[in-house]
Structure formats: C-alpha cells, structure tokens
Design a protein around this nucleic acid. Structure first.
Lengths: 245, 245
DNA sequence: CGAATAGTTGAAGCCGGTCAAATGGTGTGG
DNA sequence: CCACACCATTTGACCGGCTTCAACTATTCG
C-alpha cells in the first residue's frame, strides 16, 4: 500500500521536478487519513476549511448545490489529486466534496502547508500548477456541457477520466474503476437520466467503450476520442504520458 | 489615465495586502501596451506564450474552438484582470483570447514575473489568488450552462459581470459598458441566437435590466439576482464590495 | 421474502434549435 | 445627399430532440 505522502509526491512529480529537500518537506507534513463511504460528504458548500484534502484512493467529486435544490457535479478526482487546493485562499467553500465510491482521503493542515511553501517555493509552485490543471479541466467542462451534442459530451467525459486514470496508474489493461451512477452522470453532463441511459447505450453499441458494474472499459480508444472530439492537449500541464494507441 | 502598473496593483490589492516593496517590484516590471480592435485575437489556441496579459481597458474574452468549428466563450475579463496568468505554467494555450470591444492590453514577460515572484513571494501568492478566482468563475459557468434554465442562465451572467464591473469601478450609476453581441452571448451561454434574443426580451420585459448599444443597465438588482439564482459568494476571494442594494 | 435502489424502456409533449425573412442602423461610394 | 451593402437584431414558423412521466426489471440488503 502506497503511503499518502508518496501518492502526493508522485503526482506532483508528474509536472514538477522535486528536489530531495522538497520531498523531505512533504514527508514531514501531517496527513490525517480518513475513510469515506460511497456518496458521503466530507466538505460542504459554505465551510471554511483549515485543511487541504488529498485523494489517497478511490474517487472524489466536487459539486454545486443550486437554489432550486438541483445538484451539479463539477469535477472528479483520482488518487494523487488535491481536490480542494484552492481552499487555501478561499474564505468560504463555493462547492462541496463527496466520495463517489468508497474513498480514503488525507487532510493536511493549511498552516503546515503555508510554512512548507515558504521553506520550499518549488513545492508551492507545484501545488499552484495543480490548481491550474484543475482550471483547465473546468474550462473543458464548460465547453463540453455547452457546445457538444449529447453523445460527444459523454464520450469526452470518459476520455478525460480514462486518460487521467491512466496517468495515475489506475488502468489495468483497458479498464479502470468508475463508481458513478447514471443519475450522477446526468448531474455532471446536464442531461436527464433517460437520456444518459440511451446515450450510454449508443456508446456501447458503437463498440468504443462500456461502463458496467462501476467499471469503465475502453475497447477502441481512437474511436472514443473521435466520438468525443477529445484532445488531451489541455492536460499537458502534466508531463505527457506515453501515447495511448 | 491610470497607468497599467497601477491597474494591476489596485486589482491585486483587492484581495492581498501588498507591501511597498511589492508595489515597487510591480512598478519595475516591463509593460508592453498594445491596443486592439473589436474582435481582434491576440493569443491563439496552441500558442506558447512568453508574456502574461493584463487588461488595462476594455473587455477581453477567452474562448475554445471545437473540432466542429463552433466557438465557446469561457470567460470575460475587465480592467485589472490577468486573463492568461495560467499561461505562466502551461506549455501550450488550450484556448484563445480576443478583444470584445476596443481594448488595450499590457504584456509582461514571464521571465520578469518569475524573478519578481522569487523576490516577493507575496506577489506570487496574489497572482495565484487571481488564478483561483478565475477557477471559481469557471465552476460557476459549468453550473450555469448545465443546470439553469435559459432565463436564469442569462440573468446570472449579467449579475456576475455587473458585480465584477462594479468591483473594478467601471459602473457609473447603474450602467456599464458591455460590448457583446447576441451571437457572442449565444456562444457563451450555449443557446441559439434566436433564443438569446427572446430570452433577453423577457429580461427587458421583467424590468430588471436592459442591454442596448453595448451598454448594460441594471434597474432592479435584487430582482435580477433572484432571476439568476445569483449569489456573489464565489467571488468573495476578493474583498467584498459594499452591498449593492 | 419484501423493500429499496439502480437501471431500462416506452410514450407524450414542449422547449429550444434551425431556417427564413424582415427590420434597422451604419458606413461607403457614387 | 442618396443608394446600396453589410451587419446586428428581431420575429415567425416548423420540427426534432430532450425532458418528463410512468411502468417494468434486476439486484441488493435487511
């Protein structure tokens, strides 16, 4: 079992060259590990957090709650991600976080992080980069949900998740865990459940991918990419993984 | 005429306490000022920028171009904004920037910025904050375009722009410049031009606001806020402006 | 075994997209 | 000064895709 510190170091190392002193600083941080059940909230809209979260295993979601009561998922996070790094500078959370499937999350005190930033500016820059990658993913989500037809929209989401899962070494062969319900997909992509189901059925029928029992299987990567109008360029903030196919 | 340096200092000062040395460092930066005509591009998707932009006057837009040729606007920027601060860490731009109306933009070499960051960490944190505010705006756009009905969607956009314009001291009385066409509104909110027009007509009829001749007039702020399900909480990264009504 | 939840499928209706045409303002050139 | 072209806006009519609603199935868990 990889330790929480190592998960963070590996992820930041994807885009930033960390010196030994940087890693030592990270290892000296306090990580409070907690396990969460599926769909359990652990940060709520309106909270004023004093810790940053690190996904150690499982999948984590960020979401808005609207005045109408409706829920909108904003992003999903995998092992190694810092899903609320922006909380370091925000007085009040504008969105909540919850576990998707079972997940374990480490919490790091803001105070310690700021001290570490001062001592190791490279570490601060690395976390900054993480927040910028986040922003690039948000931008793509705006475009995806606003301008792409339903099938492409869904295909694009799975392309992104599969690509990121691969970078996080969570893909075995051509499959990875993806514990997300149809209702949640609908609240992510802005479509009704019935449409989610029918669109997913179309994708299955295309032979490019399957999603079943909380597992995503990509059978024809290039085809899925084509259907989703997906180009990984916006994720290249990270060092590029070896080409996928 | 406020100088470019002062515009930046004022904007960063909204959320970060800058020491005299920070301001001196900012004033020492090279600002290359350029004027742009309406709808002129100045950074293109795919570029590898070596300068950061600062909006000195006018309005600036960020947009994606899709494989289908369709355009999706991602965000609008006002005087004082750093619309591509994330370019500091991104090898390749995932989106383009253009002027909306006539605009003047200052360009600052990345090299100088990194040196200034090293000398004045507070300056770096202030720019980081700017990028996080950006991200909060992106998140809200995802929700807006995915989960809100047409009228609320449009009302929300104008609430945000008016609120930010006010913070940037661009509001005179109850109006501010807003040089955006119906077509561009459609490419922002993900609706067809015909729908944009009809929705805008509804908003006019409600008496809450008007948009005409490139100028936004807010007649009933509370009502507009209600129609748009708008809460400024996600912008509170900035010091809160005095309440609006 | 029964209740609850997730997924699947069908039918109906409407919202918003698409297409087309008319209006109005602006700037250019005759 | 008028004629014309061009562009943004406005409005109407049609149509299709998506939402809504409902029923049914499958699976899980008490």
């Amino acid at each position: 079992m990889e330790k929480a510190h190592d998960v963070l170091i590996r992820n930041l190392g994807e885009h930033t060259a960390l010196a030994d002193d940087d890693m030592a600083e990270i290892r000296a941080l306090t990580f409070m590990l907690r396990d969460f059940a599926p769909n359990e909230d652990f940060i709520r809209q309106g909270d004023e957090p004093e810790h940053s979260a690190l996904v150690v295993s499982g999948m984590v979601a960020r979401y808005h709650l609207l005045g109408s009561g409706r829920r909108q998922y904003l992003a999903f996070h995998l092992t190694g991600d810092l899903p609320d790094a922006q909380g370091l500078f925000i007085e009040q959370m504008d969105h909540g976080l919850s576990a998707l499937g079972p997940a374990s999350v480490a919490f790091i005190p803001h105070r310690e992080l700021f001290i570490a930033f001062r001592r190791r500016p490279t570490f601060a820059l690395a976390v900054w980069r993480e927040t910028l990658l986040d922003a690039a993913i948000f931008r793509e989500a705006i475009t995806n949900n606003s301008a792409r037809p339903m099938q492409a929209r869904m295909a694009h989401l799975f392309c992104e998740l599969f690509y990121r899962a691969r970078a996080a070494q969570l893909v075995r062969g051509n499959r990875c865990r993806m514990p997300i319900s149809l209702a949640q997909l609908g609240e992510t992509l802005g479509m009704a459940i019935a449409t989610v189901n029918r669109t997913l059925a179309d994708l299955r029928r295309s032979g490019a991918m399957d999603l079943r029992d909380g597992e995503l299987v990509v059978l024809k990567w290039r085809e899925l990419q084509r259907l989703g109008d997906f180009s990984a360029a916006y994720l290249y903030l990270k060092r590029q993984s070896p080409p996928l196919a």
